[in-house]
């Protein structure tokens, strides 16, 4: 009995050692290999299509839906909002130029010592210009994000973890630990569903692989009847395993986004997306 535990403990410690010595790039390559090995028939750049990369039946529906994309209205609304001047005469373009900036987010801000997401930057652009911040999960912020993602299509995901800044690496590592940690009454980690469980079903729904999970946000979900942000989805996934969700744009979800987006480095941005 004791010996069994000793062996297990030694194994965990060896894993811990080798993993703390894995660089983010080692992590990313192993992550990618995990999914390309599991789904050898799926071309790498198809993973950004989520569940539709591994579920041919759902894919047929989706391809039809994409002929009249349900997020189109949101993109238009976002464009109008983007070009509307603030009360002080400035506008979003004073913060984001032409707005095709999705690939620059999320990033580590070495001065502020935190991860900055695009939605956070949108609200800071507003408050810096004397406007009220928007609600995080849906509505105007998701529409602005939809427009900015739309005009950023085709750019490659390129999250950077500055090597000269150990705090950036620590933020990445916290996001990584979050991803693999079991939570909630049902005791699931993100990876239990979107890694080990990818391609399998829960109830009527199949589970999408985690590779490419961040490339297409915000998403129009039929269930939401509107576009919603990535952090809204994070919250929903936490709650469905009966864990308390964390605050949208709080430290936990921003660092989770930092890790998860890094895992998709090199894939093409294709937001906004349409999902069930």
């Amino acid at each position: 009995m004791l010996r069994k535990y000793a062996i297990l403990l030694a194994a965990v410690m060896a894993l811990a050692w080798s993993s703390t010595h894995a660089s983010p790039e080692d992590d990313r390559m192993a992550f990618e290999k995990y999914f390309t090995t599991k789904f050898p028939e799926v071309p790498l750049n198809d993973f950004q299509n989520g569940i539709y990369s591994v579920d041919p039946v759902a894919r047929a529906d989706w391809e039809q839906i994409e002929e009249f994309p349900p997020y189109e209205l949101a993109v238009d609304a976002g464009e109008a909002e983007y070009n509307k001047p603030f009360a002080n005469g400035k506008s979003y373009s004073d913060c984001f130029g032409d707005g095709a900036v999705r690939a620059q987010y999320p990033y580590w801000d070495s001065e502020r010592r935190e991860v900055i997401t695009m939605e956070l930057a949108i609200n800071e652009c507003r408050t810096d210009n004397g406007e009220k911040p928007l609600k995080w999960n849906k509505g105007k912020i998701a529409e602005l994000s939809a427009y900015m993602s739309y005009i950023s299509r085709g750019q490659a995901v390129d999250v950077k973890i500055p090597e000269d800044d150990p705090e950036a690496l620590a933020a990445y590592e916290r996001g990584k630990q979050f991803y693999y940690t079991k939570r909630g009454q049902l005791n699931f980690s993100c990876f239990d569903c979107h890694g080990t469980g990818a391609g399998k079903g829960v109830r009527l729904e199949k589970l999408s692989p985690a590779l490419g999970h961040t490339t297409h946000w915000p998403v129009y979900r039929s269930k939401w009847g509107a576009v919603g942000t990535l952090h809204r989805r994070f919250g929903g996934c936490n709650r469905q395993v009966r864990a308390k969700n964390f605050k949208s744009q709080g430290q936990e979800y921003r660092e989770l986004e930092y890790f998860l987006t890094y895992m998709s480095n090199g894939l093409e941005l294709n937001g906004p997306g349409a999902r069930r």
């Binding site: 993993s19 080692d26 940690t181 079991k182 980690s189 890694g195």
Partner: peptide, 23 residues
Amino acid sequence: EQAADGIVQAEREAVMWITRVPR
């Protein structure tokens, strides 16, 4: 009981999470 279970879970996961990372 739920809160106590959540704490035990977190303590276990602080060690175990790393076993799930693909390598």
